[in-house]
Design a protein around this nucleic acid. Structure first.
Lengths: 125, 125
DNA sequence: ATAGATGCAAAGAGTTTGCATAGGT
DNA sequence: ACCTATGCAAACTCTTTGCATCTAT
């Protein structure tokens, strides 16, 4: 039932080759290099179905709209550059988070977002 | 320059007396009990200025639109119960987050959200 | 009296949906 | 040939802004 189209292939290719989670707009811009004329509605529709089929995961950061990255990545967090607004993967994890919650609470999952400047936006002097 | 109006006072009162961060819609609904006819634009305008004057802080959780709570709380994180959907404050903090980012990156701030079951929703059986 | 604040409605920004057509199988 | 996927535009939701009016000082 899932057909292979140039648009869908381009969207997957763009996300799979990205080193960081991409916004729908970034995906559209990159996909246009592969398929001229591709529209935003197609991006959104494919993102939705690719998430449903577990090919992609949604990256939700506080106060941000959704970004998307390939599934199958190991547990990681994100670094949000306050200057260029790009989001990077952070593979380190503080761990020991189970103990942070009040007693009686069970921690199943956690999300950590770091904010600051990425290497390309290092603080000017 | 900042005048005291019934609308602004109502908005502050609603947030200050809340036990949890409130969405703009919740704030509007509650404020209508104090000032009939108050509009959403007034809520947004006041939220913005109250945040700028540090009377309120924005609570951003992944995938959620902004909520607002009184400022003056110390640094804390949030526990989001996956069962009852309530959000609790978590005052513990893992610390040592500066070292998690890739080299060349500067960490200025962080947000941590824990997901699981709160004490009232403890795993059945 | 004056300048900031309000309510309404319209404008934006981001995302979703309806519909006719293109295109995979 | 069939039926899904696409592109466009309109619809929707959330938030912001323009403007005439109101109101706290």
């Amino acid at each position: 039932m899932k057909r292979s189209t140039r648009q869908r292939d381009a969207i997957k290719a763009v996300i799979d080759s990205a080193q960081r989670p991409l916004s729908p707009q970034e995906i559209l811009d990159d996909a246009k290099c592969h398929v001229e004329g591709i529209g935003m509605a197609t991006v959104y529709r494919n993102l939705k179905s690719l998430v449903e089929s577990n090919s992609l995961v949604v990256v939700s950061l506080p106060g941000e709209s959704a970004r998307y990255e390939s599934s199958g990545h190991t547990h990681h967090h994100h670094f949000h550059c306050t200057h260029c607004n790009r989001v990077y993967d952070v593979h380190e994890c503080p761990g020991k988070l189970l103990e942070l919650a009040p007693s009686g609470f069970t921690v199943e999952r956690h999300e950590l977002t770091l904010y600051g400047r990425c290497d390309q936006c290092a603080q000017p002097h």
